[in-house]
């Protein structure tokens, strides 16, 4: 989702508030500290029909972050996440792939994946998770399975899934079978796909 698509998906009243806030941030980047927490009250929290998977407050907050000048954006994103409530933290995580910050947002992903809040763990596994090392990424995928998160939220799942992830999933499947508890269908599907890939490589 590109910034102009997010802006176009917002209801008209929210667009007005966001445009005004963006102007303020362009003049005074520090204003984002006050505007960022207010975005949900100003723009609402409704899911956006034209931006599937995004809510109005998340999109508005992403646009505020996008308005920051390049030399402060990484530091401000870090501060807004650190001092944000759960919704603000999630909005920062969703916005990371839109920002020109290189690897600077990776510590935020690590923090989110350490939590037990499904909304934060899920938001950490979007496109920006490309910056996560393979071991961290695999642990996060397995954590999604434990937390009951749908694996469809994981960006480039099949592309990044590897033999090590297959071994980890197979181990979980075995434990679940021993305990008489089912594994989620999408996790079993991933395990089967990874096993198929492994067989094809052997052949």
């Amino acid at each position: 989702m590109k910034p102009d698509e997010l802006r176009a998906a917002l209801p008209p009243a929210a667009v007005g508030w966001v445009d005004e806030a963006v102007t303020q941030i362009e003049v005074d980047p520090g204003a984002i500290a006050r505007l960022f927490p207010r975005a949900a009250r100003a723009c609402g929290r409704a899911p956006l029909g034209d931006a599937p998977g995004w809510t109005a407050d998340e999109a508005a907050r992403a646009l505020l972050l996008k308005a920051l000048p390049g030399d402060v954006v990484a530091g401000e994103a870090d501060r807004l996440y650190r001092f944000g409530d759960a919704d603000e933290k999630r909005a920062v995580l969703r916005a990371l792939p839109l920002l020109r910050i290189g690897e600077a947002g990776v510590p935020l992903l690590h923090d989110a994946i350490r939590t037990n809040d499904t909304r934060l763990v899920g938001a950490a596994l979007g496109p920006y998770a490309a910056h996560l090392d393979a071991a961290t990424w695999r642990q996060a995928v397995l954590k999604c399975v434990f937390m009951g998160l749908p694996l469809s939220i994981v960006d480039r799942l099949d592309e990044r899934g590897d033999e090590e992830l297959r071994v980890m999933l197979a181990g979980l499947a075995e434990e679940r079978a021993a305990a008489g508890r089912p594994m989620a269908a999408d996790a079993t599907g991933l395990l089967n796909r990874l096993s198929g890939t492994a067989l094809r490589k052997e052949a």
């Binding site: 037990n116 499904t118 909304r119 899920g122 434990f146 937390m147 009951g148 749908p150």
Partner: peptide
């Protein structure tokens, strides 16, 4: 509105 399922109902992970 949450993602389907959650860790608390299932115990921590």
């Amino acid at each position: 509105k949450l993602f389907e399922g959650n860790s608390i109902l299932r115990g921590g992970s």
